Amino acid sequence: QVASGNGDRDPLPPGWEIKIDPQTGWPFFVDHNSRTTTWNDPRVPSEGP
């Protein structure tokens, strides 16, 4: 069983990049398509309500 969020081996969607926040050391994700950033890994399906 693979733990949720453990998709580091999967490629990011086109136009996405991983960067590290220098203050926290946490990775965040840059979507160059929409010029936005998020803490949520785009490779992990979001949980519904």
Score class of each variant (00 low, 15 high):
40 N>V: 11
20 I>C: 11
15 G>D: 04
26 W>V: 15
47 E>G: 08
47 E>N: 15
2 V>F: 12
48 G>D: 13
9 R>I: 14
29 F>Q: 03
43 R>F: 00
48 G>L: 09
14 P>R: 11
18 I>N: 13
27 P>Q: 13
16 W>E: 00
4 S>P: 08
7 G>V: 14
36 T>F: 05
18 I>A: 06
10 D>N: 12
44 V>T: 07
34 S>E: 05
33 N>H: 06
48 G>K: 06
4 S>T: 10
8 D>N: 12
24 T>L: 04
22 P>W: 07
10 D>E: 11
45 P>Q: 12
33 N>C: 02
30 V>I: 10
19 K>W: 01
27 P>M: 14
11 P>T: 14
6 N>S: 13
5 G>M: 12
22 P>F: 05
28 F>T: 03
16 W>H: 07
36 T>C: 08
21 D>P: 00
23 Q>N: 07
30 V>P: 00
41 D>A: 02
25 G>K: 15
16 W>N: 13
10 D>V: 08
29 F>V: 01
42 P>E: 00
42 P>G: 06
6 N>Y: 12
6 N>D: 11
5 G>D: 15
5 G>H: 15
35 R>V: 02
40 N>K: 09
36 T>H: 04
31 D>N: 02
9 R>V: 09
48 G>I: 12
19 K>D: 09
47 E>P: 11
1 Q>K: 15
32 H>L: 03
19 K>A: 07
42 P>K: 11
9 R>W: 07
30 V>E: 03
18 I>V: 12
33 N>D: 03
33 N>K: 03
20 I>E: 08
14 P>W: 03
24 T>V: 11
28 F>L: 13
47 E>I: 04
24 T>D: 00
28 F>N: 02
26 W>T: 15
27 P>S: 15
12 L>R: 12
36 T>E: 05
9 R>N: 10
47 E>R: 10
8 D>G: 12
17 E>W: 00
17 E>A: 03
37 T>S: 11
36 T>G: 03
27 P>H: 14
35 R>P: 07
8 D>H: 06
23 Q>I: 05
11 P>I: 15
10 D>A: 04
10 D>G: 12
32 H>P: 01
39 W>I: 03
30 V>H: 10
41 D>H: 08
4 S>I: 12
35 R>L: 04
13 P>I: 03
10 D>T: 10
3 A>Y: 11
28 F>Y: 14
19 K>H: 02
34 S>F: 02
30 V>D: 01
37 T>A: 03
23 Q>Y: 04
20 I>H: 10
1 Q>G: 15
36 T>M: 07
16 W>D: 03
48 G>P: 11
16 W>G: 03
1 Q>M: 15
27 P>T: 15
47 E>A: 07
19 K>S: 08
32 H>C: 06
5 G>N: 15
41 D>P: 01
4 S>Q: 15
25 G>F: 04
16 W>A: 05
5 G>R: 15
36 T>V: 05
20 I>A: 11
24 T>H: 05
3 A>K: 13
35 R>C: 09
31 D>V: 01
1 Q>S: 15
24 T>R: 06
23 Q>A: 11
11 P>Y: 09
46 S>G: 11
48 G>S: 09
43 R>H: 03
15 G>N: 12
8 D>L: 08
24 T>Q: 10
45 P>K: 10
18 I>F: 04
18 I>S: 13
48 G>E: 11
46 S>A: 10
25 G>Q: 14
45 P>T: 06
25 G>I: 00
32 H>K: 00
44 V>I: 07
24 T>M: 11
41 D>L: 00
11 P>H: 10
29 F>R: 03
27 P>E: 15
12 L>F: 10
9 R>L: 06
29 F>C: 03
45 P>C: 12
25 G>D: 13
33 N>T: 06
30 V>N: 12
30 V>Q: 03
43 R>T: 09
45 P>D: 08
36 T>K: 06
14 P>E: 04
39 W>M: 09
37 T>D: 02
28 F>P: 00
13 P>R: 08
8 D>R: 10
19 K>P: 03
34 S>C: 02
14 P>G: 01
21 D>Y: 00
28 F>E: 07
11 P>C: 14
39 W>Q: 01
14 P>L: 05
12 L>S: 04
22 P>S: 10
44 V>S: 10
7 G>I: 15
3 A>E: 05
17 E>Y: 01
31 D>C: 03
14 P>S: 14
14 P>N: 12
10 D>R: 08
37 T>M: 04
5 G>F: 15
8 D>Y: 03
45 P>M: 07
37 T>H: 02
43 R>G: 08
10 D>S: 12
5 G>K: 15
33 N>Q: 06
21 D>A: 09
3 A>L: 12
43 R>D: 01
35 R>Q: 14
18 I>P: 02
27 P>W: 12
24 T>I: 11
42 P>A: 02
41 D>R: 04
42 P>M: 00
46 S>Q: 14
12 L>Q: 08
16 W>Q: 03
33 N>R: 04
11 P>A: 14
21 D>T: 04
